[in-house]
């Protein structure tokens, strides 16, 4: 339904997008996942028409909309800071796009009521945006964006400003909304957990390029690159370690922390020698870090219960099941996430 063809964009000679191509199907929930500065917001703004690409084309339903004004695109945006009109009440905000299109008054009233009910804000129709909490503003912004039934809804880190509790709740609601409305969502976030929870498909962005696109399980279980492996589910990248699987020189292995086993030295334990460096609580589990004597690399294990006897400074064997090794392209040596 939406197709981006090798979009590039630079601001003041700084390249932000280096050829982004992406296809979004009707009714699909796709997430652009990446750290700040990777170009995800710029991509969204180009789809909305708020920014012009330097090269590349944007197609919506096979129609080239690259040069179409934002108001003529059947695409709406939920802005990061909500961008509610401060001089209009909730009702007027939500009905804005219908008034612009000169829809009949009675119909506007009905559709505003429906849209507010959809986001459970029908009791707040007469409030001003300044009188609402962050989560409520968020709902109003969503109602305002979906009321005109666009083909595509763009959401720019819509839950970024909310606390964790509310964020979890809104994730579920957004997912429900998307299913009820049948509109395609392009969702931006830097939170991998959010991306894994909500998306049909995830596109991991880095340095103005899509590094990998696939379903949540594809991205998690079969990352192409060490960057994706680390960014999604923070896998251990084990460079210079003998692997079971065959590898080319610019490849390395990644092992999820839940597959890393740490054992105290004993006669029947095997693995690579290492020293425990850190032990932290993470919910019902412990996260234990160890440094490999072989390469000095840090590995994290999250499969130990809180009763684990391991203590920092202790010598351990580090091991993992050969089946849990993932061969990835090594492309992010030492880069901060």
């Amino acid at each position: 339904m939406l197709r981006l063809e090798s979009i590039t964009k630079a601001f003041d000679n700084t390249k932000v997008l280096n050829g982004v191509s992406l296809t979004v199907g009707a009714g699909e929930f796709i997430t652009l996942l990446g750290s700040s500065g990777c170009g995800k917001t710029t991509t969204l703004r180009i789809i909305a028409g708020l920014e012009q690409p330097d090269s590349g084309r944007v197609f919506l339903d096979e129609r080239d909309i690259t040069d179409t004004e934002p108001n003529k695109r059947d695409v709406n945006t939920v802005f990061q800071n909500y961008a509610l009109f401060p001089h209009m009440n909730v009702e007027a905000n939500v009905g804005y796009s219908l008034r612009i299109r000169s829809v009949h008054k009675n119909e506007i009233k009905q559709r505003v009521t429906d849209a507010l009910r959809l986001v459970r804000m029908d009791e707040y129709a007469k409030r001003m945006p300044a009188e609402l909490s962050g989560g409520q503003r968020q709902r109003v912004a969503i109602a305002r964006a979906v009321i005109s039934r666009p083909k595509l809804l763009l959401l720019d880190e819509p839950l970024g400003a909310l606390d964790l509790q509310l964020r979890r709740q809104m994730q579920l609601e957004l997912k429900r909304l998307q299913r009820e409305l049948g509109i395609a969502f392009i969702y931006i976030t830097h939170d991998q957990e959010e991306a894994l929870n909500m998306s049909d498909r995830i596109a991991v962005m880095r340095g103005g390029l899509l590094e990998q696109t696939g379903s949540a399980s594809e991205i998690y279980d079969a990352p192409y690159t060490s960057y994706v492996a680390r960014f999604v589910g923070s896998a251990n990248i084990l460079r210079g370690v003998p692997a079971v699987s065959p590898m080319t020189p610019n490849e390395t292995i990644a092992v999820r922390s839940e597959n890393i086993v740490l054992e105290p030295y004993s006669e029947h334990s095997r693995g690579l020698e290492g020293v425990v460096t850190d032990k932290r609580f993470a919910g019902g589990m412990l996260r234990i870090s160890a440094r490999l004597n072989l390469s000095g690399a840090e590995v994290v294990s999250s499969r130990h219960g809180i009763d684990s006897p391991l203590t920092p400074g202790q010598n351990v064997y580090v091991s993992w099941d050969a089946a849990s090794e993932i061969i990835v392209k090594d492309n992010d040596a030492g880069e901060e996430l």
């Binding site: 028409g49 708020l50 934002p70 108001n71 800071n81 961008a83 009109f85 804005y96 612009i100 305002r144």
Partner: peptide, 14 residues
């Protein structure tokens, strides 16, 4: 806040 103008344009206003 000029983002409000962008929001209006996005919602269909010339």
């Amino acid at each position: 806040d000029w983002e409000l103008v962008e929001a209006a344009r996005d919602l269909g206003a010339s």
